[in-house]
């Protein structure tokens, strides 16, 4: 009797210890996977900083190719973001609030650039607005050329980055309870005033984070730009294009540009977190 009880107790102890071992093993495995993934992301980014001295970094910042690219990138990404906001805000508001025939189609089309490879976007824009393009042909008759200009850079950025704002803006507008809009109207606000003074302010955090993400995507745009706008320093050579070009000559210029983009990307993530946290 005693021995049976003893055996049972020892089984119990064995079960417990096995369970503990399995649980600890699983935890260790998860930590290992997480650590490996974090290293995979951080080692390349850290390598950028490790492969260049501060002197070389600041020397590169004075290079015209770097300065031109930085200025062009900030300018075009800012203009693209403004264009996306101007067109995207009414569009996303209408899609959030109204039912109409073809709404699904409009939604799908506005989302399309997210899944479309940038190279496809580039050649599509070229086929539309190039000199021999479907639209470009007529513009060319008036002496208007779009492809391989700064404007083409902006068009490419708007094309690929617009869904980031439009999706976010639509979700933010949908999240605004209609009762606020109804209440505002009973208080005497016109539809436009309701939109500007009630709906947009309540949706503000979502709109701003959408705009920041759009700016970031526009800043990083490469494929569509190089195909549709070309790679001319000071005119169409944005930072990603300049990285691609300079790494074949002076690698330090490329690394410096990359570091600038990393810093901007970090700032973007922090800005989005700050804006969305303030909302809650």
């Amino acid at each position: 009797m005693d021995s049976i009880r003893y055996r049972k107790a020892s089984n119990f102890v064995r079960d417990i210890s096995w369970r503990q071992v399995r649980r600890t093993g699983l935890t260790l495995l998860l930590i290992l996977l997480l650590a490996l993934f974090l290293l995979f992301v951080t080692v390349p980014i850290a390598s950028l900083f490790l492969r260049i001295t501060p002197e070389a970094f600041f020397r590169s910042l004075a290079e015209p190719v770097v300065l031109d690219a930085l200025a062009l990138s900030l300018l075009t990404a800012a203009i693209s973001t403004v264009i996306v906001i101007l067109f995207g805000t009414p569009l996303s508001y209408i899609n959030a609030r109204r039912e109409y025939r073809g709404k699904e189609l409009v939604d799908t089309l506005t989302d399309l650039p997210i899944v479309l490879p940038p190279a496809v976007a580039g050649i599509a824009l070229l086929m539309a607005f190039g000199r021999r393009g479907v639209v470009g042909e007529y513009l060319d008759a008036f002496g208007i050329q779009i492809a391989f200009t700064t404007f083409a850079v902006i068009l490419a950025q708007v094309f690929v980055a617009s869904p980031f704002y439009i999706r976010q803006a639509r979700a933010s507008f949908e999240a605004v309870d209609r009762i606020y809009e109804d209440a505002a109207r009973t208080l005497g606000a016109s539809r436009l005033r309701v939109l500007l003074r009630v709906t947009v302010p309540i949706a503000w955090a979502g709109l701003v984070s959408g705009a920041i993400l759009t700016f970031a995507r526009a800043l990083g745009e490469f494929g569509a730009t190089i195909m549709f706008a070309g790679n001319y320093q000071g005119r169409t050579q944005t930072m990603p294009l300049a990285i691609y070009t300079t790494m074949q000559g002076n690698i330090y210029d490329a690394i410096s540009l990359a570091i600038l983009l990393v810093i901007i990307s970090f700032a973007v993530i922090l800005a989005v977190k700050f804006v969305t946290r303030r909302k809650t």
């Binding site: 309870d177 009762i179 606020y180 109804d182 209440a183 505002a184 109207r185 009973t186 208080l187 005497g188 606000a189 016109s190 009630v198 302010p201 309540i202 503000w204």
Partner: peptide
């Protein structure tokens, strides 16, 4: 007549105070 011109005070159940 549009809602905004009716001069009617409408209190909603949730009060619908503007949260911002």
């Amino acid at each position: 007549m549009p809602t905004e011109e009716r001069k009617i005070g409408h209190l909603f159940q949730s009060y619908a105070l503007f949260p911002h």
